[in-house]
Design a protein around this nucleic acid. Structure first.
Lengths: 160, 160
DNA sequence: TATTGTTATACTCTATAACTATA
DNA sequence: TATAGTTATAGAGTATAACAATA
């Protein structure tokens, strides 16, 4: 059978063909990077979803709430609540543009910008920790493949 | 700057260095495979977590509930509820072994085995769909890297 | 009529702590 | 005392549908 065996603290669990499932392996790998994120930000009350949103708003001031939701595959209903938290925290500002008064444009407050700046370096350092066990070349290769998997087909990505 | 731009339906969103974050890219990639799973099993009321659990129980009859939880990084409290659902559905059997009456051993019922067998082929076919946009060699490479990332360091994995 | 975002609802998942029953 | 699992609770994420305001 050649079945892969995962050994965790003395326990042997046969995962069978699961380890050939991209979905399953992506989940396992993500759990690990998630752990590393929380270990790095244990003191800071920073969560990956919220920080990612603030990061993107920082890079795209005035972005529409819907565009942000589609970019991150977050449902509009959830995005409303997430943004609400960030507005309550004083990090994000919402503005209704006169051109389309149905929509909402997002930008960071001074506090929001300071928050992103303050944690930027640590956030980038987490990337290094995430790659534990990989060589630099392997990490690059992995990012390239994930990029292709995530963007190919359902959208168009380009480097400028 | 060379910042990567993600274009979705006419919208240009600058993701900046996020695309160099393994955690972020793993999340984006996983969202996609998650979608594909649900598209494939739209009619069947099969969820990835539950199906994965049943798959592992099928391959490891008598596995302890705690070992299963640790393998999948699912918290014991949640595992209790997840198994409860599968027991209620008639797919999983719980047994308390006389050697250690604190623990619970899991196995599939006939219905559980039939259910896994019935969806096995489709589950494997999802893997192919997940790889859309990748060549076979790329998919293999990606799995290898994910395997290394997921297992290296926190546990020991071996092929037999 | 279609689109943007909100509200409401329900369920899953995550995290924690307190608890039981065994060891 | 420590371990295996359960119960309880709270919050976050996901999914859907109905809705208001605007286009």
């Amino acid at each position: 059978m050649n079945a892969p065996i995962l050994t965790i603290v003395e326990e042997r669990v046969d995962l069978g063909e699961l380890t050939r499932s991209l979905g399953f392996m992506l989940r396992l790998a993500q759990v690990r990077t998630y752990d590393q994120f929380f270990r790095a930000f244990a003191d800071a009350d920073v969560r990956p979803g919220e920080f990612t949103v603030m990061w993107i708003v920082a890079a795209n001031p005035g972005i529409r709430q819907g565009a942000l939701a589609r970019t991150l595959s977050i449902k509009p209903a959830h995005m409303t609540k997430l943004i609400e938290r960030l507005v309550r925290g004083g990090f994000v500002r919402r503005e209704v543009p006169p051109e389309d008064r149905r929509s909402v444009q997002l930008s960071l407050t001074d506090a929001g910008r300071a928050h992103v700046d303050h944690h930027r370096k640590r956030f980038l350092r987490v990337h290094a920790a995430e790659q534990a066990g990989l060589t630099g070349a392997e990490a690059d290769q992995l990012l390239k493949l994930l990029h292709k998997l995530a963007f190919e087909g359902l959208s168009h990505a380009a480097e400028h």
